[in-house]
Structures are given as C-alpha cells and as structure tokens.
C-alpha cells in the first residue's frame, strides 16, 4: 500500500499543452526516433550534395548563405545557448575573421588557407580581451560590453587605412584547392556546406562532454556550480572564445567568397539577426538552431513576391511564436 502511494507521489507532473505545442511536439517526436533521423540525415546529405548540379545560380547563392548562417548561429549558440551568456556584438567577431584574412591576403599576398590560423588566433585574442574582464560580472554587463565592442569594431575598421576605410578592402585572393582556383558559386556552396557540417559535428561533441555539462550547470545555478568545483569564469571564457572562433572562420571564408568586404557588412543588425535565429530556433538545441538559421535566410527569399510587406509579416510571425512558443521552434528537452 505504501509503495503504491509513493509511486503516485513521484509521478511527474504533466503540464497542459496548447494545440500548437502538441502538434509540433509530435512532429519532433518522430525525429527523435533514431532510424527516422538517420534516414532523414542521409536524404538531406544526398540532396544538398546533388543540388548545385540541377539548380539555378540564385538557389545556390541563397543556400550558400544559409550554410553560412548555420555556422555563425551554431557559434553564437555556444555562447548564448550553451553557456547562457548574452552577446550583442557577435558580428564583430565575424568581422575580425574577415578582416584578418582580407588584410593578410590583399596587403601581404598570403595564401588564403594560411590566413585561417591567424583568423582563429585573432578571434581568440579578441575573445580574451572582451570576455576576460567582463565574464567575472553578471551577464547583463557582457551584453553591454559586446554591444559596444560591435560598434567600436565597425567604426575602427571604417577609419583605419589598413582596413580600407569606409569603402572596404578589395582584391582578396581566391583560395586554391588541389590546383583549382575556387571562384564559382558552386565551389563556395560546397565549402560552406563542409563548414556547416563541421560546425554541427563540433557542436554535438561539445554538447555531450565535460565542458558542455559544465555550461549547463552554470546556466542552471551559478553558485552551486562554483561550489561543485567548476571555475565559472574560465569555463565561460572557453565558451566565449570557441563561439568567436566559429564566427571568425566563417568570416574568413566569406571574405574569400566576396573578394571584397566593407564595414557595413558587420553592422549591429547583423548581430541581432544571428541572435534572433538562435532564439527563434530554440537556444541550446542544435537542430533548433539550424532550423532557426534556415528560416532566417529562407523566409525573406521565399516571400519575395509579397514585396515590401514581407518583413512586416515576418515580424508578426515572430511575435506569435514568442507568445505561443517562447522556448523556440525546437527547444532543448533538458530545459
């Protein structure tokens, strides 16, 4: 008898779901099935690899942009979703990478591939300089400092001679891979796709690791995490730096694709759009963030016919989403 009573007591509380939540949970529930997920992933892989052979330049351009967004969103997700830090100047790190490659390539003629380590290094240094002092404080301060850093970076880049001022840098060398110069959209389509797959892989590995768990503990309860022997400041700095490196590498490849970069590419709105995609998809959940990035890129393109009203509709949709599903399209089960 007592056993039965105890069993009743320990039943998890079932919360009421809105119809929208019920429907979407069912859809995602299907994806949680391993077999379904595996075949789905294989299907997507084959489709994306074959796509450039049978689609227009426009489609390829849009999808390349989507892969790029997946990389930067997953990078920001490590900072915002995994470690729970609010960063409002993420585009600055992406500028750090783009300009490192741009300057080294156009001024010093260094091979594109050789600029990548420098780009990562520059992001690490920038991450330590910005994160080191501010991560000791409450995360609101980080939001303000990153916001400032974003604007400062844009203004500095606009006014320095080495960065080409307001008109930007031109003449960034094309990367060469196995004797082939990469210049067609198709090349960059594949390059960004590989980068996106790499970003997804690294994100999953980090999520399920000692470091990934430490971020979760800190997000749940900072004091308890500290009491359990976790160095809160250094673990956060880790997240901040890893996220910055993601952005810098994506920025470098972007610089090579465009062959020209200008300060306005890295405006505040860019940071906000990336953050929006992460929140929209579901902070901390990798498939959610990918979905968020895709929606962010594809929605404005697919709704071009509606004309000037599309951003208005997008805004209204976002508003409804935040009211009825504040945890994002595909949120993390654990939170």
């Amino acid at each position: 008898m007592t056993e039965k009573l105890e069993a009743c007591e320990t039943q998890p509380v079932v919360r009421k779901k809105t119809p929208l939540q019920g429907l979407s949970d069912t859809v995602y529930g299907i994806f949680e099935n391993k077999r379904v997920r595996f075949s789905f992933i294989v299907l997507i892989l084959v489709l994306t690899l074959l796509l450039p052979q049978m689609s227009s330049r426009y489609t390829q351009e849009v999808l390349t942009n989507a892969w790029f967004y997946i990389v930067v969103c997953l990078g920001l997700n490590i900072i915002v979703g995994f470690a729970g830090l609010l960063s409002l100047g993420y585009a600055a790190f992406f500028a750090v990478g783009a300009y490192t490659t741009g300057i080294l390539s156009s001024h010093y003629g260094i091979n594109f591939w050789a600029t990548l380590p420098f780009s990562a290094l520059a992001a690490i240094i920038a991450g330590i300089v910005i994160g080191g002092p501010t991560l000791r404080l409450r995360s609101d301060y980080l939001a303000i400092v990153t916001l400032g850093f974003g604007e400062i970076t844009r203004l500095v880049v606009r006014n320095l001679r080495i960065t080409g001022g307001a008109s930007g840098l031109i003449g960034i060398e094309r990367p060469v891979l196995f004797g082939v110069t990469l210049y067609q959209i198709q090349h960059f389509y594949y390059m960004f796709f590989v980068l996106a797959v790499l970003a997804i892989f690294v994100s999953y590995r980090l999520y399920d690791s000692r470091l990934g768990r430490a971020w979760q503990y800190i997000r749940e309860d900072e004091d308890a995490a500290e009491a359990m022997g976790i160095n809160v400041v250094s673990v956060r700095l880790y997240a901040f730096i890893i996220g910055s490196v993601f952005a810098a590498i994506a920025g470098s490849v972007m610089a090579a694709k465009m062959t020209a970069i200008s300060p306005e590419t890295f405006a505040f709105m860019q940071s906000i759009m990336i953050l929006l995609a992460v929140v929209l998809g579901g902070m901390g959940k990798i498939p959610g963030v990918i979905l968020g990035a895709l929606v962010m890129v594809l929605f404005p393109e697919l709704s071009r016919e509606i004309g000037p009203y599309r951003m208005l509709i997008f805004g209204v949709l976002l508003l409804f989403l935040m009211i009825y599903r504040p945890q994002g399209l595909w949120p993390d089960h654990r939170t």
Partner: peptide, 16 residues
C-alpha cells in the same frame, strides 16, 4: 556528475 568536474580535465580538443 558535476561533482567530478574538478577531478577531471578534458577540454575542447578532448571533447571534439
């Protein structure tokens, strides 16, 4: 498992 954090040391490379 959080308690074991200070008794272990895998970092970024180990995880990836």
């Amino acid at each position: 498992m959080s308690g074991m954090h200070c008794r272990s040391n895998a970092g970024f490379l180990g995880a990836v």
